[in-house]
Design a protein around this nucleic acid. Sequence first.
DNA 1: CATGAATGAGCGTTCATTCAT
DNA 2: TATGAATGAACGCTCATTCAT
Lengths: 190, 190, 190, 190
Amino acid sequence: MKLKDSNKENAIIEQTLDIVYETGIAGVKMSKLAKRVGISPSTLYVYFETKEDLIVSVARRILKNIAAGLESVLAESTSFENKLRAKWIHMVQFTINHEKEINFMDQWKRSPYFDKNIFKEMKDGFKMKMMLFQEGRDSGYLKDLDDNIIHAIMAGIANQTVTLIKAGHLQMNQSTLDLTFSIIRDALKR
Amino acid sequence: MKLKDSNKENAIIEQTLDIVYETGIAGVKMSKLAKRVGISPSTLYVYFETKEDLIVSVARRILKNIAAGLESVLAESTSFENKLRAKWIHMVQFTINHEKEINFMDQWKRSPYFDKNIFKEMKDGFKMKMMLFQEGRDSGYLKDLDDNIIHAIMAGIANQTVTLIKAGHLQMNQSTLDLTFSIIRDALKR
Amino acid sequence: MKLKDSNKENAIIEQTLDIVYETGIAGVKMSKLAKRVGISPSTLYVYFETKEDLIVSVARRILKNIAAGLESVLAESTSFENKLRAKWIHMVQFTINHEKEINFMDQWKRSPYFDKNIFKEMKDGFKMKMMLFQEGRDSGYLKDLDDNIIHAIMAGIANQTVTLIKAGHLQMNQSTLDLTFSIIRDALKR
Amino acid sequence: MKLKDSNKENAIIEQTLDIVYETGIAGVKMSKLAKRVGISPSTLYVYFETKEDLIVSVARRILKNIAAGLESVLAESTSFENKLRAKWIHMVQFTINHEKEINFMDQWKRSPYFDKNIFKEMKDGFKMKMMLFQEGRDSGYLKDLDDNIIHAIMAGIANQTVTLIKAGHLQMNQSTLDLTFSIIRDALKR
DNA sequence: CATGAATGAGCGTTCATTCAT
DNA sequence: TATGAATGAACGCTCATTCAT
């Protein structure tokens, strides 16, 4: 008995990400996708019940990957500022390295396939990132700001930083990271 | 001889904005749009040659409105910090009051209907906003940062602020504006 | 009280002929036609009840013109062969000079607007041309062929001659007329 | 796995020919065609990419058939006149037996779907038919006329003959063939 | 008589999904 | 499991004609 080929499933998801990156979520056509994966359109339906199921599955997988990627890092740095700096660098690099995934989530949120319930799963996966901020407030380093606000400021500036890098107004190097982190620090430091 | 009803053109654009806000740019169907405006689908083609023409016309009109909205403001404030604060409040309020327009532009940029040439028309209208930053640098108030970076930081935080307000994590009041401006100021002040 | 402007009616018919010549009978669009004439689409309906009425009216007018054009000629030539030659030259020249009209009739016959009843009017207008052939048979010059056959042969060769001229394989000059007439004469002479 | 049914493709082409014969090329509507074939309109697009592709495919098939039909014939007749007579009979019969195809080609040439490049493919297939005329001129039987003119005369009269047959003015029998051939012979013989 | 706006009916085409093997 | 054919439902758009002035 042949089982579903998980390589094939991965290939489908990979191509979906690529197509969304190239042509937007509305550019995902089941037959075009099948052709790029090298299978028949009807075979897609062996792996995903509907197109919506496919899109949502891609979103769910990305959420898992993002959550996993955000956990690691920091830990052994000594000072809090070093930890915050490490987190900042990680955020910027992550935003750059996962262009396609971030782009997908961006588009998914505004698409007819968006499902709020699934989106909430992400929130939980993000809980732990906040513990760092609590430590910063407790040690008197950070302003007394809500976790959401602190994260929002960092995320907002990270997004814009990456936009400026992609537009050529900034370069992805140490000096840019230093510059932007100094802004973050000034913004958040008590 | 029946005259073209300019209210009808406005109504079409208004409904288009609403539909994009509700269902994304891919959710704009000429027949659905016509039904919401209360006209026949073919009448849409009296006012706009194609669907693309419609979308681009909406974008063009928004660009004009944004440019117009950015001109007024400030001027009479005394200190530079007051001018910057006024600009910040204006940015947040504008982002909130023009939700649909901003959402439309966001989606348009990633849609098949996007036309770079039209987008460039906007750039010129935005030149003047940068003069404020020059004044801030000259007076020694602002860090020596590129105009684009300063604007990106303010815009990034403004977007996130509005997101938090809409999510209920913040309220649109004076204390929120004071809080967020203090962050902006700390981030940008020399 | 203003009456229907017959210049306008002529202009409509003229433009219809031109459009059919340029783009075929399926290329006749009431609004495009109106624009070319310089009037409003609805004004067309002052002069012609429907599109079919327009097309049929053009056909009917052409039939009248053809019938009129075929009457004149000959008469004073002495020998029958000279009369036949005159008729032949007239046929070729007519075919060339009335390209648009002939093209229209050709297309009309195969179009959804064709009406056999109107077409029969032509037959009557063509009756007189046959008298010449009767004279030819009576005088022993022509083979004993049916009028329709004689006319068909001349018309068939005239059409092909014009086609060859337009394709550049022949030139419209005396020698071509002499050559082709000699073929006609040999084909029909007893 | 369902296999593509080549009878279905044939049926589509057959019905297209019929519809063009009945209502002209402008009368070919994809939905009407589908209904007559007994399939869904969208199934048409499994076999032909667009309406234009369908029309051009029909034309291309006809050109192949015509070229194939012109090759066989003659060869074994003894005298040149017998060969010419055989060719004439073949032309008339072919014109009658392929009414729909000839009508289609006639209309296609004036339609928006016409493609000169495809038409040129035919020209080559027609080269061989001319060799007969060269033989006729060499042997002193035919007048010294250009190949195109000879063929044009025969084709023009063949067309008109068939028109007269269809109109009931002639009957498709030996005596008609003899009569018309005698006209052809007199027209072309030196 | 003249007009520009308005429209219903219909067209060619696309595409997610199901069918039949 | 895997497939290519088949399709219904929709979409963007056109156009002859009518409406309202």
